[in-house]
């Protein structure tokens, strides 16, 4: 008889259904409180399969990002004529990215052999071309995300579209080089890449490069509202700069992290 209500209590017990509510339970030792699942994935989450990690290399540092920023400001004069600078620089930027792609592919491939660059074969060229096209299409969802984040709807559309394109080539393109869509487990890998389920991401140079671009772009909004009345505060110059600088910084951080460990 007396057991029945107790049983009821157990089945609906509080701590079972919502562990967080008991995380400051006195019964827990002060030294080891029940912690919610953190970013460190060691605790209670399913152990993720290690993603193949591109080994760090100095050659993988995207120095061309800095070149692009420099060229945009001083060669194309983006501050005074935004849209025409974006248009005229597009081809050059694409070429630079393509070149970087060739170099990355070669570096990643030749890792095991002595670091000797060799000219790419036809398959690799084909892969690069297709990757560029995919990156081009990936700009569409990025464009939508930019709109969701508050980019103006109905005005400055071309600027936003260019920004999306640049971002796509800073994030999707390098990842496509490291994680080929021709691999057998590409689908699973890419789902995990896109949902940020990458263990030890800070050691992954290419991945951190892409992340750096996003973070840089996110931080790039900061100067926009300031009332300094500078040309370079125009949409989307600061975001573009942030993305390029961020992508270099991300790559550099990961590289240094790997070296000094």
């Amino acid at each position: 008889m007396s057991a029945t209500p107790k049983k009821v209590k157990k089945t609906v017990s509080f701590s079972r259904n919502s562990p967080s509510l008991s995380d400051r339970n006195p019964s827990t030792e002060p030294g080891s409180p029940v912690r919610e699942s953190g970013f460190d994935l060691a605790d209670d989450e399913p152990q993720l399969r290690e993603l193949p990690k591109p080994s760090p290399a100095f050659v993988l540092l995207p120095f061309h990002s800095l070149v692009v920023v420099y060229a945009l400001y001083f060669h194309y004069d983006i501050s005074s004529k935004v849209i025409s600078a974006l248009r005229s620089s597009a081809l050059a930027v694409l070429t630079l990215q393509f070149g970087f792609g060739l170099m990355t592919l070669a570096t990643l491939k030749n890792k095991k052999k002595a670091r000797k660059l060799r000219s790419p074969n036809g398959g690799e060229l084909m892969y690069l071309v297709i990757s560029s096209i995919i990156s081009g299409f990936a700009a569409v969802p990025i464009f939508v995300i930019l709109l969701v984040f508050g980019a103006p709807i109905g005005s400055l559309t071309e600027e936003t579209a260019f920004l999306a394109l640049h971002l796509s080539f800073l994030t999707i393109f390098p990842l496509l080089l490291a994680y080929k869509f021709t691999d057998s487990d590409a689908g699973d890998t890419w789902i995990r890449l896109l949902t940020f389920q990458v263990p030890a991401f800070y050691k992954n140079q290419v991945y951190l490069q892409a992340m750096g671009a996003l973070v840089g772009c996110w931080l790039g909004v900061i100067p926009i509202p300031l009332d300094w009345d500078r040309d370079w505060q125009q949409w989307p110059i600061t975001l573009l700069t942030g993305a390029y600088v961020g992508s270099f910084a991300g790559s550099l951080i990961s590289y240094l992290h790997n070296i000094f460990e």
């Binding site: 919502s18 562990p19 967080s20 400051r24 699942s37």
Partner: peptide, 9 residues
């Protein structure tokens, strides 16, 4: 909040 378990976060 329920799914992510951040009730007192």
């Amino acid at each position: 909040i329920d799914i992510l378990n951040i009730r007192t976060n």
